[in-house]
Design a protein around this nucleic acid. Sequence first.
DNA 1: AGCCAGGGACCAT
DNA 2: ATGGTCCATGGC
Length: 269
Amino acid sequence: MITVELDNFSLKEICQSGQCFRMYETEENTYELIAGDQYLKMTQDGGIVNFHCSDMEFICYWVPYFDIDADYSSYIAKINPRDTYLSAAAECGSGIRILQQDLWEMIITFLISQQNNISRIRGCVERLCEAYGEKKISGEKEYYAFPNPERLAAASEDDLRGLGMGYRARYIVETTRSILNGEISLDRIYQYRYYSRAKQELLKLSGVGEKVADCICLFALHHMDAFPIDTHIRQVLDEHYKRGFPNRRYRGMRGIMQQYIFYYELNKK
DNA sequence: AGCCAGGGACCAT
DNA sequence: ATGGTCCATGGC
């Protein structure tokens, strides 16, 4: 087990920030996460966080995954103090991290997310993993990895509708096909240095539009300028930023500001 | 019963 | 480029 003391890091806020749909609070201050084919159990008490894994796994996998080396207080310090809304949002979600999740997993997960609510998205993703993911064991814990493209290709559109994917089933089938046949290369998308280039490529996928592409750029590729505009963010922009969000000021950190707002809207009051 | 949920494809101007 | 309309499903 690894024990570390971290600033601006809250498992509760990360869990509720809606980036990862396979992270659960299983008991008080205890969280379980399945990312790709990895399982991780964590506990947190104040700033002390325990990761139930080896040194090697922590350093190679979870440090980049949770963006642990980044200093989020410097992001928060850049917020315009006169922007009382954003200041309040960032204070509310100051422990949020922008995760670096698997690209393929984010593509499928955010295809499912569209016009859907978070609890139902969780259910859909879980059923998809149970049906097509590889069964794994970590200690006493049995879990299903997220299915890779080859495994998911076994699913027909009707199969996926049977799992409750609704009209998104066609998007999943078509997107899986275009990645397997090499029409779109995940490796290439990983290597694009510029956010706009990665997004442009993602937009070629069936069922991937502006918002979903931005989520993938932010939560998998760590393009911190991606600013997904969903129905909640739209309402905030209309209400608090009638003259537009101050993009210039937050260049290079728009994505984390978006997450503070999103989390705030879902958890305030 | 109708509205909403981390929207996008497709079609009409 | 912009603006409807339709697309499944479950919770309220």
